[in-house]
Computed example of a mutant assay.
Amino acid sequence: MSNSLALPITLTAGNFDSYLNVVGQTNKLNAEEERELAIRFRDHQDLEAAKQLVMANLRFVAHVARGYNGYGLPMNDIVQEGNIGLMKAVKRFNPDLGIRLVSFAVHWIRAEIHEYVIKNWRIVKIATTKSQRKLFFNLRKSKKNLGWLSKNEAEAIAQNLNVDLKTVYEMETRLDGKDMAFDLPEADSSEEAYSAPISYLEQHNTDPALLLENADWAGHKEMLLSNALQGLDERSQDIVASRWLTEKKLTLHELAERYNVSAERIRQLEKNAMKKLKGAVSILA
């Protein structure tokens, strides 16, 4: 339905005031008019009726959106998300419930705005669970006139919102955190430059030349090991393979029974074979 309803003016940052003027001039609907339009849309899928319901309530969306002005996000985007919530509400509205559309739609409007704010307020998503989302908005309001929460304040918030005390403290820490650019602009001092995450989060093992060199060297060692293993006698090869190169490793006693010798003899043969293999691999180390 949202694709079929066009707003009377494009909602962009440059003409936001003009948009507010236009929606402020739209005619309000009384309860009977609203119910009639809602029935037309529900029973006959009358998109023109749905459009009139949306248009008549755009000013209410703008009113709700103003409450989210303190998050540092573009107000036109917040209003646009609220409009999406309004259109979803119109689609689900039941005129037989005996309530006005705005009373029903406020939940959908706030839900869409909340989703947008949480996704865009920080680079890293700050709230993922239902309890964290509830805390994000309520705790931010509670902290406007407070510094760090005292134990009693945190316990009161946890009880009022029915969340764990630990979740309150975690969200408080997240709210007080700040995003930082990975690579800061040219700094005036070396100390400022060092504070940029790029200076201490650099991953030195991702150099393509170094990775290629290491891979080539590992392949060379594997070749040396394979050649050294083939240079052993058949019994020594079998002992090494049975003890180190199979998923189900055999014990010294099991190999002693196989070759009809003592377990100590198997241990000596294994030790000598491993010594030869290590020598072959480490010759160029």
Rank of each mutant, 00 (worst) to 15 (best):
N260D: 15
A50N: 04
I266Q: 03
L97A: 09
S236N: 11
G147Y: 00
A209Y: 08
I84R: 05
K119I: 01
I78N: 02
L255S: 05
S103R: 05
G231Q: 12
I9M: 15
F16H: 10
T26G: 00
K271V: 04
T167A: 15
F182K: 12
N145V: 11
P74L: 09
S282T: 08
K178F: 09
K275E: 14
V79E: 07
D77H: 07
N260Y: 07
L161F: 06
F16L: 14
T26A: 11
A6T: 12
R133N: 07
Y169Q: 10
Y259C: 09
L149V: 06
S189F: 06
L37N: 03
L47K: 09
D179E: 13
A209G: 04
D77A: 10
T206Y: 13
D183V: 14
F16R: 11
W121A: 09
R267L: 08
L277D: 05
T167S: 15
L37F: 09
S236K: 08
T26I: 11
K91C: 01
D96T: 12
R265M: 07
L97T: 08
A31H: 09
K125T: 15
P185D: 12
D96M: 12
N83Q: 04
N15S: 13
L184Y: 15
A31P: 00
L210N: 01
E33Y: 06
E115L: 04
K28I: 06
E155I: 01
D77R: 07
E191V: 12
G219R: 02
H220F: 14
L225W: 00
E115A: 13
K141E: 11
S2G: 13
G231I: 10
K151E: 15
V64M: 09
I99A: 08
T128M: 05
F41E: 03
L269T: 04
A105V: 02
L224F: 03
H107Q: 09
L252T: 04
Y194Q: 13
L277P: 05
K28Y: 01
S262P: 06
Y194R: 13
G177N: 07
D233W: 04
L224I: 02
D176V: 10
E112C: 07
S2M: 09
R122C: 06
M75I: 10
S236P: 01
E170G: 00
T173Q: 13
K144G: 00
L252F: 14
M171D: 01
F182S: 07
D43T: 08
Q230H: 09
N138C: 03
K278S: 08
L175M: 11
I118D: 07
E192Q: 14
K248V: 13
S226C: 04
R59K: 14
Y116W: 08
L212M: 10
K151C: 01
E153W: 01
I283S: 10
M223D: 08
Q25N: 12
E34P: 02
V117G: 03
L11C: 08
I126C: 04
R235K: 14
I113L: 04
E81G: 00
V168K: 00
K143F: 07
E191D: 13
Q45W: 08
N205A: 11
S150R: 04
M87S: 02
T128Y: 05
K28V: 05
N21H: 06
V23I: 15
T246W: 00
Y200H: 15
G85F: 04
Q45E: 15
I123H: 12
V23A: 04
S199Y: 07
A50P: 01
N76A: 10
A65K: 02
T251E: 05
